[in-house]
Design a protein around this nucleic acid. Structure first.
Lengths: 263, 263
DNA sequence: GCTTGGAGAATGGTATAACCAATTCTTGCC
DNA sequence: GGCAAGAATTGGTTATACCATTCTCCAAGC
């Protein structure tokens, strides 16, 4: 056996990781400003002393996360806001941890009442106008966009609560639940949901935090039970097996029971 | 002018995005099981009809997000749990949106009292034992690991609240705040924090949700004001400018005021 | 002077080939 | 049976070439 290298191999030397770290530092230091344009890939690669392929791996990670945007023939730009930065990761989190819609609704039940109370405490007049706007849109707008406005109503409350961290997080949770929530709208009249929303809104408008918390809790508990009923109705979900080309590979090596497992 | 291609160019045709979508489907369908081993890169590339470089871009994204792990000479494996899946994205979110420690503490203030109340409602005996363990570790353990156990105490409460979504999210928030929280421990005696923790624990143990909520709020408000004091004390943070090689590039083209801006 | 083409440059997207280092598997010797 | 050397496999990295899109810029035409 050859002599074991002395250096600890625990810390990964991955070039991609290093590059991402560099970009992180650049952003933190303000060398890279939102909306700003990065040098060309070929130039960046030379600057960092890596190949273009390696650099592209790092850039791709940043693009998928929503940190940058790349356009052919144009260039690479640092995104101003982090709109959908938690989107992809959250979807994989749901997949990998096998998180059910039930648990997602639970998360809403934990957080959103608290956010509603917060909103009642410190919503500006403008915030309240925003919330009212979504309420009215649900009432008079296109019925097909009812679920969309439902969620926008909730997100307006998040903004009123004045915390972008929570806002970002639950915008993602909402998106993951959107399709399921749409199912529930067939079980009740639009007025049903609307009334519950109105009660939340009134509590916020009247600056009654504890009321807002209770109303929100009430609304989400109702939505949750509706969701359970809706899911029971359709029992089996439609399994898509579009990628036929992969069935072979999956039988061979894609499952857990393949050889060469880690000891 | 040449004839404009008829196909809408709005939907991105990015191969990497497609590949990630494929992997997502494979995981969703169960063709890929946690802990399972994926085929070799060269084989996957051939299966999907893409180059190895393109495939590697997709795999790298998944690896950074924590979905898979790659080991040289061994292979690529699907991770069982999504431990740190929101870590990187959250850090970029904080950077890009310019989220301050203040806002992070606000987020904790919104969510953690609600989680504490939840924990008081439904913690198992085992959960309570876990929380107690962290409390004792703070009391008798290594003083240098006091902050670590402080945060572990909070995360034990998250687990007791029984929601992995919230748990994942705020484990990340905690990590982002860890260094700053450590600063505050110099301003008070260990007993100070310990007592506040004990009161939260007792409320949970005695199954008093509203008490737990209040105690947690009390603790976080205290921590927040300590944090403000600590920050005032050191005023200027040490700016690290490690990547000297980049200062040139940043002066040239990395800032927002470069040419070729989007119209 | 202003608009309008069009050529050429720049840029991101992809594919191919080659080599390296780490790990695992296989083989054959003792 | 155990073990060590070599072969095969696998991810990590680099280099190069080509494509399609977009932008820049200058000259021709009005």
């Amino acid at each position: 056996m050859r002599a074991v290298p002395a250096r600890a191999a625990s810390a990964k030397d991955d070039v991609t990781v290093k590059l991402i770290g560099i970009f992180k530092k650049l952003i933190a230091e303000g060398a890279l400003l939102p909306g700003g344009r990065l040098p060309a890939e070929r130039e960046l690669a030379e600057t960092f002393g890596v190949s273009r392929s390696s650099l592209r791996q790092a850039l791709k990670v940043l693009e998928i996360m929503g940190v940058i945007s790349q356009r052919v023939g144009d260039g690479t730009y640092l995104n101003s806001g982090a709109q959908r930065i938690l989107g992809e990761p959250m979807e994989f989190l749901i997949l990998l941890d096998g998180i059910s819609f039930h648990e997602l609704m639970e998360a809403r039940l934990i957080v959103e009442p608290a956010l509603a109370a917060r909103a009642a405490d410190r919503a500006s007049d403008e915030d309240i106008a925003d919330i009212r706007r979504e309420l009215i849109a649900m009432q008079t707008g296109d019925p097909s966009r009812l679920t969309a406005h439902d969620l926008l109503f909730h997100q307006a409350i998040f903004r009123a609560a004045g915390n972008r961290v929570c806002g970002q997080m639950f915008a993602v949770v909402h998106r993951s639940l959107e399709n399921m929530i749409r199912l529930t709208s067939q079980l009740v009249t639009p007025d049903h949901t609307l009334n519950l929303h109105r009660r939340i809104f009134e509590a916020i408008r009247k600056r009654k935090p504890e009321d807002a918390r209770r109303r929100m809790e009430e609304h989400l508990l109702d939505a949750k039970s509706l969701l359970v009923r809706a899911m029971k109705d359709r029992e089996q979900t439609d399994r898509q097996t579009q990628i036929a080309v992969l069935s072979k590979a999956s039988r061979r090596g894609l499952t857990a029971r393949s050889g060469r497992k880690r000891v």
